[in-house]
């Protein structure tokens, strides 16, 4: 396969970036998208040119570090894939592919396609936990949880924190990400004690980090690699309103 790549190159958050065109040939359709970037970087390295910086780690769709917007779609053309699961067979020979970083005002560019997603960490710091210290826990089976509730909590807990929802949202709202954590913990009995503060604090942090408002377009759920559902956003709003009413 032959591909033309237009890749976003940006020295740092303080400088302007631009698309730079590269051409690659002799690619196999079994190559993954990130391996294609490896090939490009090897070519650049052997010419002594700086590599295209991009984030990646586990390359099996679970760590959430890879973060590319490919032809305008977070994580690439396939629905519910991560960037690392995207393969070249989703493209055709001769295609031109535009690659940009996950963009949002709260995701400053570090270099090229690498962005700083520390804002998501800080939202979790605000309340996305259960304050049970090591050694405090009661015997596990003293808290029976209905099978379906555990499964539903898992659906929310499966969020890999990649930020595709934010990158996709036209408003850069982190609603799906925040709601996945609020939903996960609100559904479980262990999460009840801190439920009220958690909703208030996390949404407060969400706003302070500069994320936008949710317009319920649903684009976030369409790109989410773990298929976290929009219902979690509704659940988050419920938790917030409940907290406001009783706190």
């Amino acid at each position: 396969m032959k591909l033309t790549l237009k890749i976003w190159r940006q020295e740092s958050a303080k400088t302007k970036g631009k698309l730079v065109t590269y051409k690659l040939s002799d690619l196999s359709s079994d190559t993954s998208f990130l391996e294609m970037l490896d090939v490009l970087n090897e070519e650049l390295a052997s010419k002594g040119e700086p590599a295209v910086e991009f984030d990646h780690d586990c390359r099996e769709g679970i760590c959430g570090q890879c973060s590319l917007v490919i032809n305008g779609k977070a994580h690439g053309p396939e629905e519910h894939y991560t960037t690392c699961q995207t393969h070249l067979r989703s493209f055709s020979d001769g295609d031109t592919i535009t690659i940009e970083p996950f963009r949002a005002n709260s995701f400053p560019v570090i270099r090229d396609l690498k962005v700083d997603r520390g804002s998501m960490d800080r939202i979790i710091q605000a309340g996305g936990y259960i304050s049970s210290f090591t050694g405090m826990a009661p015997e596990a089976n003293t808290i029976p949880i209905h099978h379906d509730i555990a499964e539903s909590a898992f659906d929310s807990a499966a969020c890999i924190g990649c930020g595709a929802c934010i990158a996709t949202c036209k408003n850069s709202s982190a609603a799906l990400f925040v709601s996945a954590k609020i939903g996960h913990l609100a559904k479980l009995p262990q999460g009840q004690i801190e439920r009220t503060e958690r909703a208030l604090w996390m949404i407060n942090a969400h706003d302070e980090e500069g994320f936008g408002n949710c317009s319920n377009t649903g684009a976030c759920a369409m790109v989410c690699p773990q298929e976290v559902q929009l219902l979690d956003i509704a659940r988050m709003n419920f938790e917030y309103n409940r907290a406001k009413c009783i706190s």
């Binding site: 826990a137 009661p138 596990a140 808290i143 949880i145 807990a157 262990q190």
Partner: peptide, 13 residues
Amino acid sequence: IDHMVAQGVPFGR
């Protein structure tokens, strides 16, 4: 297991 359940890990039930 006790610790992780208390932390909210949604183990299979």
